Structures are given as structure tokens and as C-alpha cells.
Lab assay of single mutants.
Amino acid sequence: DWEDIVRFLRKLFELGEEVVIGDWHNHHREEIKRLIEWLEKHF
């Protein structure tokens, strides 16, 4: 279910905002944000 995936990604992203998950999070933050925005537009 796409909504569950979007919710999971958003939760992960919000957690990442508070607890910076090292370089991985910083590197992928923009991609995650773009992916969430893309999914919201399409689903």
C-alpha cells in the first residue's frame, strides 16, 4: 500500500530531522524529500 510507504518515509524523514542519521541522512535527505513529494503527487 503506497500510503503506508509514504507514511513510513515521512516518519523516517521526520525522525531524521531530530536525530541526524550521520552522513547517510544528510546525503539522502533531499532525495527522500523529493521522493515523498513525488509520491504525494501521484498517489
Rank of each mutant, 00 (worst) to 15 (best):
14 E>A: 10
9 L>H: 00
12 L>D: 00
1 D>L: 15
15 L>P: 02
20 V>H: 09
25 H>D: 09
38 W>H: 02
43 F>P: 01
14 E>S: 05
42 H>I: 11
11 K>H: 05
4 D>R: 11
15 L>Q: 04
17 E>G: 10
18 E>R: 08
16 G>T: 12
20 V>A: 09
12 L>M: 02
3 E>R: 11
25 H>R: 05
16 G>A: 14
34 R>G: 03
11 K>I: 11
33 K>P: 01
33 K>L: 06
21 I>E: 12
24 W>A: 09
25 H>W: 15
4 D>S: 15
23 D>Q: 03
13 F>Q: 03
10 R>F: 11
37 E>H: 06
2 W>C: 09
30 E>Y: 03
40 E>G: 06
22 G>R: 04
35 L>C: 09
33 K>W: 13
39 L>E: 00
35 L>Y: 03
16 G>R: 06
37 E>D: 04
1 D>V: 11
14 E>N: 04
25 H>T: 05
28 H>V: 15
26 N>I: 11
27 H>G: 05
8 F>M: 11
43 F>S: 02
19 V>I: 11
3 E>M: 14
13 F>E: 01
1 D>S: 11
30 E>A: 08
35 L>I: 04
2 W>A: 01
31 E>F: 15
12 L>A: 02
39 L>P: 00
38 W>L: 05
32 I>N: 00
30 E>C: 06
24 W>Q: 10
17 E>H: 10
8 F>H: 06
18 E>W: 13
11 K>W: 15
4 D>G: 10
26 N>A: 11
6 V>K: 07
26 N>L: 04
37 E>L: 07
3 E>N: 09
9 L>R: 00
8 F>V: 04
42 H>T: 04
21 I>D: 12
28 H>C: 10
9 L>I: 08
1 D>F: 13
36 I>Y: 08
33 K>H: 04
22 G>K: 06
16 G>V: 14
3 E>K: 09
5 I>S: 00
4 D>L: 14
41 K>W: 09
28 H>N: 05
40 E>M: 14
28 H>S: 05
15 L>H: 09
11 K>A: 09
38 W>G: 01
7 R>K: 13
35 L>E: 00
11 K>F: 15
35 L>P: 00
10 R>P: 00
43 F>Y: 06
29 R>L: 14
43 F>T: 05
5 I>L: 09
39 L>M: 02
14 E>F: 06
7 R>Y: 05
19 V>W: 06
31 E>K: 11
5 I>W: 11
36 I>E: 01
34 R>Y: 10
32 I>G: 01
19 V>M: 10
14 E>L: 08
9 L>F: 07
19 V>K: 05
3 E>Q: 10
2 W>V: 02
12 L>E: 00
16 G>C: 15
9 L>D: 00
33 K>R: 11
33 K>G: 04
37 E>M: 06
39 L>A: 03
12 L>I: 08
8 F>G: 02
12 L>S: 01
7 R>W: 07
1 D>I: 13
1 D>P: 13
10 R>Q: 14
40 E>I: 15
32 I>K: 00
33 K>M: 11
1 D>G: 12
27 H>V: 09
36 I>W: 09
3 E>F: 11
1 D>W: 15
29 R>Y: 13
11 K>D: 09
6 V>G: 03
10 R>W: 14
20 V>R: 03
40 E>H: 10
26 N>W: 10
1 D>Y: 14
28 H>E: 05
22 G>H: 07
31 E>M: 13
22 G>C: 11
21 I>G: 11
9 L>W: 03
11 K>M: 14
43 F>I: 13
25 H>M: 15
34 R>M: 14
37 E>V: 05
3 E>D: 12
6 V>P: 01
18 E>Q: 14
29 R>D: 04
39 L>Y: 07
17 E>Q: 11
12 L>C: 07
32 I>Y: 05
23 D>S: 04
2 W>M: 02
31 E>N: 09
22 G>I: 12
8 F>E: 04
3 E>L: 08
33 K>I: 11
34 R>D: 05
27 H>M: 13
43 F>C: 13
14 E>D: 05
41 K>E: 08
32 I>P: 00
28 H>Q: 07
43 F>R: 03
17 E>V: 14
35 L>K: 00
33 K>Q: 07
32 I>M: 03
23 D>I: 09
43 F>A: 11
4 D>F: 14
20 V>P: 08
22 G>M: 04
31 E>I: 15
29 R>S: 14
17 E>R: 10
29 R>W: 11
13 F>K: 02
15 L>T: 03
11 K>E: 07
40 E>R: 10
24 W>Y: 08
14 E>H: 04
29 R>H: 14
23 D>V: 05
12 L>P: 00
2 W>D: 01
31 E>H: 09
3 E>W: 13
41 K>I: 06
8 F>A: 07
10 R>E: 05
28 H>F: 15
17 E>F: 15
20 V>F: 15
36 I>R: 01
41 K>D: 06
40 E>Y: 15
21 I>H: 14
4 D>H: 13
43 F>D: 03
13 F>M: 06
10 R>T: 10
38 W>K: 03
3 E>A: 08
25 H>L: 15
24 W>G: 07
1 D>M: 12
22 G>D: 09
41 K>V: 12
19 V>H: 10
32 I>V: 06
33 K>S: 04
42 H>K: 11
35 L>A: 05
32 I>D: 00
26 N>H: 12
13 F>W: 11
32 I>Q: 01
32 I>L: 07
7 R>G: 06
38 W>D: 01
34 R>Q: 13
15 L>Y: 09
7 R>S: 06
31 E>W: 14
19 V>Q: 06
29 R>G: 07
13 F>H: 02
11 K>N: 05
38 W>T: 02
19 V>A: 09
13 F>D: 00
18 E>A: 14
5 I>P: 00
27 H>E: 09
35 L>H: 01
21 I>L: 10
26 N>V: 06
4 D>I: 14
13 F>Y: 10
10 R>L: 13
8 F>I: 10
18 E>D: 10
19 V>Y: 02
22 G>L: 05
24 W>N: 10
31 E>S: 09
40 E>N: 12
33 K>Y: 07
42 H>F: 13
23 D>F: 13
11 K>T: 08
28 H>M: 14
32 I>H: 03
8 F>D: 02
5 I>E: 00
31 E>R: 06
22 G>S: 04
38 W>Y: 04
9 L>E: 00
7 R>I: 07
16 G>D: 05
23 D>P: 06
22 G>Y: 02
36 I>H: 04
17 E>I: 15
12 L>G: 00
33 K>D: 04
17 E>D: 06
7 R>Q: 07
16 G>L: 15
25 H>E: 06
29 R>P: 10
42 H>E: 07
36 I>T: 04
12 L>T: 01
28 H>R: 05
19 V>D: 06
35 L>R: 01
43 F>N: 02
31 E>Q: 12
34 R>V: 14
26 N>E: 10
37 E>G: 06
10 R>N: 11
38 W>F: 08
39 L>G: 01
20 V>C: 04
13 F>I: 03
43 F>K: 04
24 W>M: 11
29 R>F: 10
12 L>V: 06
43 F>L: 13
7 R>M: 02
16 G>E: 03
32 I>S: 01
23 D>R: 01
27 H>S: 10
43 F>H: 03
11 K>P: 02
21 I>S: 15
21 I>C: 12
9 L>G: 00
4 D>E: 06
6 V>E: 04
23 D>H: 05
25 H>P: 12
16 G>I: 15
8 F>P: 00
4 D>P: 12
8 F>Q: 04
1 D>K: 08
34 R>A: 04
42 H>Y: 14
5 I>H: 00
29 R>V: 11
27 H>K: 08
41 K>F: 11
26 N>M: 07
38 W>E: 04
30 E>D: 10
39 L>K: 00
18 E>T: 08
6 V>H: 12
26 N>C: 15
29 R>C: 15
1 D>Q: 08
2 W>N: 01
2 W>K: 01
21 I>P: 09
13 F>V: 10
27 H>T: 08
13 F>G: 01
21 I>K: 15
9 L>N: 00
42 H>V: 13
15 L>D: 02
37 E>Y: 05
18 E>K: 14
24 W>R: 04
5 I>R: 00
19 V>S: 10
41 K>L: 12
14 E>Q: 13
12 L>F: 06
19 V>E: 06
4 D>A: 13
30 E>F: 08
22 G>Q: 05
24 W>H: 09
38 W>C: 07
1 D>A: 07
28 H>T: 11
3 E>V: 09
32 I>A: 02
31 E>T: 12
11 K>R: 12
40 E>A: 14
15 L>W: 05
24 W>S: 08
8 F>L: 08
29 R>A: 12
37 E>P: 01
38 W>V: 03
27 H>A: 11
5 I>Q: 01
27 H>F: 14
17 E>P: 11
41 K>G: 12
4 D>T: 11
6 V>R: 06
13 F>T: 03
17 E>C: 04
30 E>H: 08
42 H>Q: 03
41 K>R: 14
10 R>Y: 13
28 H>G: 07
43 F>W: 13
